[in-house]
């Protein structure tokens, strides 16, 4: 957990020195479980800045909303810094126009896992130094292990430290184990075809097509999404099985070689639909086949934007 005062001081410094026009971070939310993304324009406003494990959004999703000429400061964790790198590679913002304040992140708490144990009515959540979380709820006080509350993507995170940040506040954490990341994919792939499909079907059929997953994702910045096309209509518009499955199949596939496994899509979903088992599979394939991980720098092209003759593909004769 980085020192919040150091974080504020740095944000104030870059604003007052005119290095950036705006700093994107979090502020305390109106409900205890949901800190809000916030946009600070003056050093005074920075006093509201907060950073804790309940900050569940990927702030890079806001980057594409600003004109490319704007100088933006952003508080970034490992996944966010990689998303920023990927966006810079895709020409969505010049790197010179960004100042990244990095914070090593030991995982985002999934608020759903808190309310599962405490009930819906939560009054306050306090992170304690011994890796526990003290929750005050209507049903009483709870001391919960932070480890058990982490969002699944965070539990298997490989890059907790910000990459290519301009400054890092807080002590760097040990890198995660890549084997951990593929464990889940391997376990899923080990199931039978029917089991895998049954899981996919059961997850997809809860979808209400609100597109929170799309909007929460920093890499989903298309002006017009494929589901918004009228003609040709790529997949059914409603919540029919084909429509919902089509959406989930293609949303994830469009992230191939671009997804940083931040899990913001899953955290945004109002129907608790699991989605990262799809993107993780694609990420794992990119790692295995092309030795590629997105966002480690802002210059390496993802596999789908390059071609080589010597792919090791089953389609090769």
């Amino acid at each position: 957990m980085p020192d919040i005062n150091a974080l504020k001081a740095e944000a104030k410094r870059i604003l007052s020195e005119g290095m950036v026009d705006i700093v994107i971070g979090f502020k305390a939310g109106d409900t205890p479980l949901h800190p809000q993304p916030a946009f600070f324009k003056t050093p005074d406003e920075v006093d509201q800045l907060v950073y804790n494990a309940l900050c569940q959004n990927n702030l890079a999703t806001y980057l594409t909303r600003f004109p490319k000429t704007q100088k933006i400061g952003m508080v970034v964790r490992g996944c966010e810094s990689r998303s920023v790198n990927a966006l810079v590679f895709e020409g969505q913002h010049p790197r010179e126009g960004l100042y990244l304040i990095g914070v090593p992140c030991d995982g985002i708490i999934d608020w759903r896992k808190i309310v599962e144990q405490t009930g819906e009515e939560v009054f306050s959540v306090i992170e304690q130094s011994d890796n526990t979380v003290l929750v005050e709820a209507k049903s009483g006080f709870f001391t919960l292990e932070k480890e058990t509350l982490l969002h699944e993507s965070c539990a298997r995170c490989i890059h907790p430290n910000p990459i290519s940040a301009d400054v890092v506040i807080g002590e760097l954490l040990p890198e995660g184990d890549p084997a951990l990341a593929c464990e889940k994919v391997a376990a899923f792939a080990g199931l039978s075809m029917e089991e895998r499909h049954a899981w996919f079907r059961q997850e997809a059929e809860r979808c209400i097509r609100c597109y929170a997953c799309r909007e929460a994702c920093p890499m989903c910045y298309c002006e017009e999404c494929f589901v918004d096309h009228i003609s040709p209509r790529w997949t059914e518009s409603g919540t029919t099985p084909a429509g919902m499955q089509g959406w989930h199949i293609v949303r994830a596939f469009h992230q191939t070689g671009r997804c940083t496994s931040c899990g913001a899509c899953e955290r945004a979903c109002p129907m608790d639909i699991k989605m990262t088992y799809l993107t993780e599979k694609l990420n794992e394939d990119m790692r295995r086949k092309y030795n590629f991980e997105v966002g480690l720098d802002a210059t390496t092209a993802p596999p789908f934007s390059t071609v080589t003759l010597d792919d090791k593909s089953r389609f090769v004769i």
């Binding site: 075809m193 029917e194 895998r196 079907r201 199949i249 596939f253 191939t256 799809l278 599979k281 394939d285």
Partner: peptide, 10 residues
């Protein structure tokens, strides 16, 4: 990759 991915889900 797409066919691999479809294989993943059925």
């Amino acid at each position: 990759e797409f066919s691999d991915y479809l294989n993943h889900i059925g």
